[in-house]
Design a protein around this nucleic acid. Structure first.
Length: 325
DNA sequence: AATTCCATCAACCGCCTGCCC
DNA sequence: CGGGCAGGCGGTTGATGGAAT
């Protein structure tokens, strides 16, 4: 069953031929699309208006960016998705030249697997619960009995290390796995130093979005929340029900570019190339525990998860994020 | 070399929303 | 106000090509 606009006439379906593309491109270039429902007739195409619109938006539009996603684009997708969820059209607006369809496909075929391989829930961006990790693990045909005896909180020492201005690794910080539907609180410093290198952050509304690339105290606190502690939507209520878990200070620099732990600047060019192989290697990393414990843990993703907490600051709603820039 | 499996991506489907009458 | 229509969106499907067996 087609769309209403397609029921009135015979319409062709399936892949577009070069001839059809030419007709549509020529018509829209000369006349604009106007009402999409009238485009097929005016352009001499046996397609429905929706199909023409989709073809134009996803393929023929002259401002489309061709080629694979860059590491920076990937990071933007992850960060915005964490806030907005599967609102692909909104996410795509942050990526000039990319379409919602493209972003959606990239997410489903690549990023989703990468997050899972890092032990992160693609929906919530939280670290997966032990149960989820276990089921994920089972699905991957790996098993380990040691996990079942862990406490409610699992602290992974992933050698998460902040970097100096040259991205040199400087410090260690633990990462905490929060069981599902739990709360994480993040203490935001009152001053918010700007980092001129955070190009993406500069595009954001910096009065409402905590800028990427700024120094950030990420402090997981105990029972009584100080005024500057912000509860994160969708993360539950466990924090205040538990005594102090840990307190760590992390300093993040130049957040825009995902990094691989321990890489020095000269190696980052290779890292960039390696990034393109992520999809190929994702399956190799599907063993969640192995990846969490291994040296190849993607610090960029972890930082991203923590940094996102700060991005909630002063947002009255998810929609604010989507509409403010 | 043939077959099967899997990942990717273009396109479709159906729902929702806003506009117009 | 309510119905019809068109556009927009997210979920899903199916074709395709490459990798694995």
């Amino acid at each position: 069953m087609g769309h209403r606009c397609c029921t009135k006439q015979k319409v062709k379906r399936g892949l577009w031929s070069p001839e059809e593309d030419d007709k549509l491109l020529k018509h829209i270039t000369e006349h604009g699309h106007g009402s999409w429902s009238s485009v097929p007739k005016l352009a001499g195409l046996q397609r429905c208006g929706k199909s023409c619109r989709l073809r134009w938006i996803n393929y023929l539009r002259p401002d489309l960016k061709k080629g694979s996603f860059t590491a920076e684009e990937e990071q933007i997708i992850i960060d915005v998705h964490r806030i907005l969820g599967n609102r692909w059209a909104q996410i795509a607006k942050h990526l000039p030249g990319r379409t919602d369809n493209e972003v959606k496909n990239f997410w489903n075929s690549c990023i989703k697997k990468k997050l899972l391989s890092q032990g992160l829930d693609p929906k919530t961006h939280n670290l997966l619960s032990l149960r989820q990790r276990a089921s994920n693990k089972a699905a991957c045909k790996h098993s380990s009995s040691s996990q079942s005896q862990q406490s409610a909180f699992t602290v992974f020492n992933v050698s998460s290390q902040a970097r100096d201005a040259n991205n040199t690794v400087m410090m260690n910080a633990p990462a905490v796995a929060f069981p599902n539907d739990q709360t994480m609180a993040v203490q935001i410093p009152s001053s918010e130093p700007q980092n001129p290198n955070a190009s993406y952050a500069q595009n954001l509304n910096e009065s409402t979005i905590y800028p990427y690339g700024s120094s950030l105290d990420t402090t997981f606190v105990s029972s009584s929340p100080p005024s500057s502690v912000h509860q994160l939507p969708g993360l539950g209520n466990m924090l205040y029900e538990n005594p102090c878990i840990w307190d760590a200070t992390a300093i993040f620099e130049t957040f825009g570019e995902p990094r691989v732990e321990g890489l020095q600047p000269p190696q980052q060019q290779q890292q960039q190339q390696d990034k393109e192989k992520i999809c190929e290697t994702a399956e190799d990393k599907i063993d969640v525990d192995a990846s969490l414990e291994s040296d190849s843990f993607d610090l960029g993703l972890l930082e991203s998860t923590l940094m996102s907490a700060a991005m909630y600051r002063d947002l009255s709603s998810m929609d604010d994020f989507g509409w403010n820039f």
